[in-house]
Design a protein around this nucleic acid. Structure first.
Lengths: 345, 345
DNA sequence: TGAAGCTATGTATGCGCTAACATTTGGGCC
DNA sequence: GGCCCAAATGTTAGCGCATACATAGCTTCA
């Protein structure tokens, strides 16, 4: 009896889908291994046999079971990616570049969102590791102790993106958020701004940029820097509200608004226009991310650009290099950032 | 001998990660099955045994191998999602809502981008099916013949989103793009517009909306409707360029620009402002998607809203219903759309 | 001409888990 | 006291592949 007794509705496929290599072999008059070879190393199979096998596959619609393959070979050709949010273009475009390269090398992507929450991240890591991915992409360099332990125990390549550290779990690709904040402060000071305020999302990296900005700007200008912080992710509406709050709190005229994202910055610009405030006269604005719309706003938005495409590509290549145990791979890749000066600051 | 001889570098984990249930059982003084039960049905295991097993798991950092579990049970608890692009907020936010619900029910997500290309979609479907997902989410209702064949043979729940049809592969959640185009034409005519042009991305659904709009608008106004088509996805810059082209081609004054996305519409608004054209005086604009920025543009953008959150949630629930073989599930879910009238048209 | 090597295939085994069935133990009950 | 049943655990048999090793038929060339 080929199949054991099963209750209905127990997950057994209705039809197709459960054709196996053994079935194909039977049809083609060869053994299961030869079918396996025909798929993974066709050069090792004679042309005639190959053709019979391919016919059988075509006729049956056979799709090899990669789950079984992964179990047998201990290689899943699956990559896990954990990002804070897919609706944030900044992560989505990095993912896009990353997954395109991995796909080109035969790897599929498993995705989870962590929402900037280390506990959710830890849960996701555990869930993903149970799937035995061949590698893992994490966003950021701060992870719970439990997460670090699991990742080290898993013994697979891990790339942390969007930040850099001298002590990555395995390797990291990103840039220094502290340096970005400092550069923005120096840019603002050099541009003549002596007063600044901040608008920051509930994102640990945004907070680090803000802190570095505030510290450096205080050093340079001596003044105090007030700010509006959000728990949540950046939206245009929140940016508008932030400017309302800042004006209520007596935000000085002619000051620079350092925003943790272009969404906030656009909101500030929109609210300023609605109130008849001139930019950069009454207030100047600097965003982060240099999204496509930044250059087209009126006034065009000054922003900190990070090449998310390069980020994703470098991360993918770092993993591929690790798979091939290439010796030339470095653990820390700084992709840098660039302040794009436009009319808003 | 427990492990066979292996060459170095053949994918074997370095440490941890290859603890098995049998190892845990040995430590806890029970058999492997009891460990399995402790994890999947703890009520069936005595409290003392449970505690010893949990201790052993804690000590070793054991993470169960879901690959083996999936092979044995023929249930992967994996859902495949194929979307045209994750960088398009319209799909990203739908995915976000979808994956949140699935995650809450213990399902992980496998993701691929298809780039509006049926061939890429077919390849992705094949790759995903080899992973034996428990269900599949597809974008759109048009798929290659090969794709349809594979999906039917797989015998798993499939939900097609962003469109509806009377003949889904399994079930679909979306709205009628033809109806949306017709509604936009009727809205435009009722608002007094007698001339219209279109700006359309290389997206089969956008083209269908456009065609329906053009046909209905012609019926109502008698006039011709010219348009700019892009092969690629919608960007603000392309929208600007589209208006440039349309003006060059003698686009009539006071006409309505029907855009296949808010990105295009924003580009048209930006270009109009740059040229000193008034909106909706010199030209009116209607977008699609009602993204967050639409309401904040100047003038605020009239757009066709589709509730992407509901779309993702309904799609998730449709799959969950199928898993539970609930009888109350319908095959076609029309989530509708809504024209949000603002200042731009 | 025969040993060595190569090509094409096959056999055996097990990856780590779940599902079905078997067994043991200890009450509860008539 | 014997019977039945439930609770707790164990035994067995695969899931569909990939890997290691074995084997048969052919070349090749010393």
């Amino acid at each position: 009896m080929k199949s054991r007794a099963r209750k209905p509705g127990d997950g057994r496929r209705i039809s197709g889908g459960n054709v196996t290599m053994a079935d194909i072999g039977r049809l083609a008059g060869v053994s299961q291994v030869t079918v396996s070879r025909a798929l993974s190393a066709p050069a090792k199979v004679s042309p005639e046999t190959l053709e019979r096998i391919r016919d059988a596959i075509r006729v049956t619609g056979f799709v090899p079971n990669a789950v079984a393959g992964a179990l047998a070979s201990n290689k899943s050709r699956l990559i896990s990616a954990l990002v804070p949010s897919v609706t944030n273009i900044v992560y989505a475009s990095m993912l896009h570049a990353f997954s395109n390269i991995m796909l080109g090398h035969g790897y599929q992507l498993m995705l989870s969102e962590t929402g900037f929450d280390p506990e959710r991240e830890e849960a996701a890591i555990s869930a993903h590791l149970s799937r035995r991915p061949d590698a893992l992409l994490l966003t950021g360099i701060h992870h719970s102790a439990g997460a670090r332990r699991m990742l080290l125990a898993a013994g697979i390549p891990v790339v942390e993106v969007w930040d850099i550290t001298e002590t990555p779990i395995d390797c990291c690709v990103g840039f220094s958020h502290g340096a970005a904040g400092v550069a923005a402060a120096e840019f603002a000071h050099a541009a003549g701004y002596r007063q600044a305020v901040t608008v920051t999302a509930g994102d640990e990296r945004a907070i680090r940029r803000r802190n570095a900005f505030v510290e450096r700007f205080r050093q340079l200008s001596g003044g105090d820097v007030m700010g509006v912080d959000f728990d949540s992710t950046a939206t245009l509406g929140a940016g508008r509200q932030a400017l309302v709050d800042l004006l209520d709190r007596g935000m000085p005229r002619g000051c620079l608004v350092f925003c943790s994202s272009d969404q906030f910055a656009q909101g500030v610009l929109v609210e300023a226009r609605a109130r008849g405030l001139s930019v950069p006269g009454d207030l100047a604005v600097i965003g982060f991310g240099d999204q496509e719309f930044a250059a087209h706003l009126d006034p065009a938005l000054t922003s900190i650009r990070v090449d998310r495409d390069v980020l994703g590509r470098v991360a993918a290549n770092a993993l591929l290099a690790r798979f091939e145990r290439r010796a030339d791979v470095e653990a820390v890749h700084d992709v840098g950032f660039e302040i794009i000066r436009r009319a808003s600051a």
